[in-house]
Simulated scan of single mutants.
Amino acid sequence: MASNGAKQPLLSGLVDPPHQPKQKINLKKRRLRRCRSAPTVDVSLEKKCGLSPLSQSILGKFDLSFTQVGLLLAIYLGISALCFFAVKNQIKGIKTNGILDSLYFCIVTMTTVGYGDLVPDSVPAKLLACLFVFTGMALVGLILSKAADYLVEKQEILLVKALNIRHEAGTMEIMKEIEMNKVKYKLLVTTVVLMVLIVVGTIFLLKIEDLSLVDSFYCVCSTITTLGYGDNSFSTEGGRIFAVFWILISTICLAQFFLYIAELNTEHRQQALVKWVLTRKMTSGDLEAADLDDDRDVSAAEFVIYKLKEMGKIGQDDIALLMKEFEDLDADESGNLSAYDLVLA
């Protein structure tokens, strides 16, 4: 097994470093032929042994679907609205309808807008507000990670199709373009949605709450940024019905907007680093650093690992962990992996 040069794995030079220059040419051809795709995973084996990546991760148990997040939001709003309704006489301010005011106060609290048009005025009411503001912020975090991404990703394909409307693009081309420009398209979709929410909110305050154009826009901006001065707010019954949905959606959308800007900036910096690594010339110092097995000859595996380390894709700790796993699987210590090694391991 160890003597067959065509069966040497990609990282064999790091485990068993014999110097075989003639076999390296064959290795390159073999590698290119065998690395086109990853082997398929035996799903039945995963189900039997419980090897799902999510089930093995620390946060996997908290990985919720969009439906589950929506259900949690409904439960939270229902419980908090009932609690605030129970102490409605202990909340002072501009009131319209008991149930609606409780739900509106819940939304204003969980999004940390806090206009001040409704304020807790007793010890139980204040303690309830403290409880629900923390749980509400945690729930908003879940919504940010699930619901907003879900809604934005649903629009990505439509956006790409619209951008490529002049020439027909197949499904594979569309998915490839989405993957390459994923963050950029998410930012574009979120920006459009945010502009629509700002316009709708401004028009609504202008028509229903009878505010001036400047005051309407000012109230919208102070709301979606959760500034909430309180000089302007939703004081009518119709306005609070609108606010229950609009405040939650708009504040989350703005948070996603800034998140995607930061992510896009990080992605551009990473791409700039990758471009610099790939375009700069190799030096003798680079070759010496890339020669992991100190045989004064850099193999394809060593070259790839060195470049990935320069790009920041992997670190020395990552390599050590992978080599440890390789050594554990290499039961016969031949420097190669085979089906027999897996059986022994």
Rank of each mutant, 00 (worst) to 15 (best):
K161S: 01
K95I: 04
Y104Q: 04
I208P: 02
L131T: 13
I58M: 13
A169I: 12
L227D: 00
G70W: 04
L45P: 00
F62A: 13
F84E: 04
A272H: 06
S233K: 06
Q316E: 14
G13F: 01
A262N: 09
R30A: 14
T67A: 13
L73H: 09
C83Y: 02
T202G: 11
I25P: 01
L128Y: 03
N97L: 10
I314F: 06
M110G: 01
M1Y: 11
Q270G: 02
V123G: 00
L344M: 14
E325Y: 08
D149L: 13
D291A: 08
I319P: 02
K95W: 06
L342F: 15
I94S: 12
A125T: 05
Y340D: 13
A169V: 11
Y150E: 07
Y104R: 03
I79E: 05
D330E: 04
L206H: 12
G136T: 01
L10C: 06
S284Y: 03
T226L: 02
N336T: 14
A81W: 04
L159R: 00
L73F: 12
F234K: 03
K161T: 00
V274P: 00
V152F: 08
F258P: 00
D297M: 10
D63I: 03
L308N: 08
D297E: 14
K48V: 09
K309N: 02
D317R: 09
L187N: 02
S57M: 07
Y306R: 04
V199D: 01
C130A: 13
D328N: 08
V192H: 01
A129K: 10
V304D: 03
L205P: 03
E168I: 06
G228N: 08
Y104S: 08
D297I: 05
P39H: 11
A147E: 01
A289I: 01
G13D: 15
V192I: 15
K281P: 04
A81F: 04
I249F: 09
Q8G: 00
P21Q: 06
Q256K: 13
N181V: 00
S44K: 11
L51P: 01
V133G: 00
V189S: 03
